[in-house]
């Protein structure tokens, strides 16, 4: 009549307990995935703040730029700004000054050089903005596999335990499988935000790049008009 009553209380299924009773391979996987998750969220916080700032400051910079009367005065004011749009502007101005330094001005060559210089500045700024995104992409694609590895390893271990105890009751198997599945859970926990953030940020950076390109084109056309006039 006495039934085997297994007290699988919730305390043994809490994340900390699951981690502590895991195998060392599974533990390593869990620690790695946890660090990856922390790193992901650090990048998410940092990059989202940076993109928001770049967008806002870029807006006001462009507004100020098109309203500015004197480009040299504007250049003095924003010459050492860290903004991507300001960098593009500084690159254009520097190329303009170098090309128009001499007595004779090669208009066609100057236009091409201006375009190239500002395009290079845009590309450089976009690279700088998106330098952390590859980490997000890597975590987003690899973390589920790492978690799956931990799960497979943990379940293999659980089966070994079953074979050793010759007892297939759920109470014997459950803790091992729960701890193994916990690895996949952490993997997904790290990967899902990483993938979402990667898509969102690459979309935002694309928009910033398009905007920089538009700004560079507008500045380029302004300088071209100046070349005609010169």
């Amino acid at each position: 009549m006495d039934q085997l009553f297994v007290n699988t209380d919730a305390a043994t299924l809490s994340p900390v307990a699951l981690f502590l009773q895991a195998d060392f391979v599974v533990k390593a996987v869990m620690i790695g995935l946890l660090l990856a998750s922390i790193w992901t969220w650090a990048i998410i916080f940092a990059v989202s703040r940076k993109l928001k700032r770049v967008r806002k400051a870029g807006d006001s910079f462009e507004r100020d730029f098109w309203k500015a009367e004197d480009i040299d005065a504007f250049h003095r004011m924003h010459g050492d700004s860290e903004l991507p749009a300001a960098k593009v502007f500084v690159a254009g101005v520097a190329e303009w000054r170098r090309s128009t330094k001499g007595s004779t001005i090669d208009r066609e060559g100057t236009r091409q050089r201006l375009g190239t210089a500002m395009g290079a500045a845009v590309a450089g700024e976009v690279d700088k903005l998106s330098e952390r995104l590859n980490v997000l992409a890597t975590i987003g694609s690899v973390a589920p596999f790492v978690g799956l590895f931990g799960t497979v390893w943990g379940i293999m271990r659980a089966f070994t335990a079953i074979a050793a105890e010759q007892n297939s009751s759920l109470a014997v198997v459950a803790p091992g499988i729960a701890e193994a599945l916990f690895a996949t859970a952490i993997g997904l926990f790290a990967a899902i935000p990483a993938v979402i953030a990667y898509n969102r940020f690459s979309h935002g950076i694309d928009r910033i790049e398009a905007r920089l390109n538009r700004f560079a084109d507008g500045f380029h056309s302004t300088l071209s008009h100046e070349l005609e006039a010169a």
Binding site: A11, P15, S37, I38, W41, A42
Partner: peptide
């Protein structure tokens, strides 16, 4: 700063989960 925030957030989340499970 973002790294610190993320680490704190994870610690808080796992603490909450543990307490919630208990």
């Amino acid at each position: 700063a973002a790294l610190g925030i993320a680490a704190l957030g994870h610690v808080a989340l796992f603490g909450l989960l543990s307490v919630g499970f208990l």
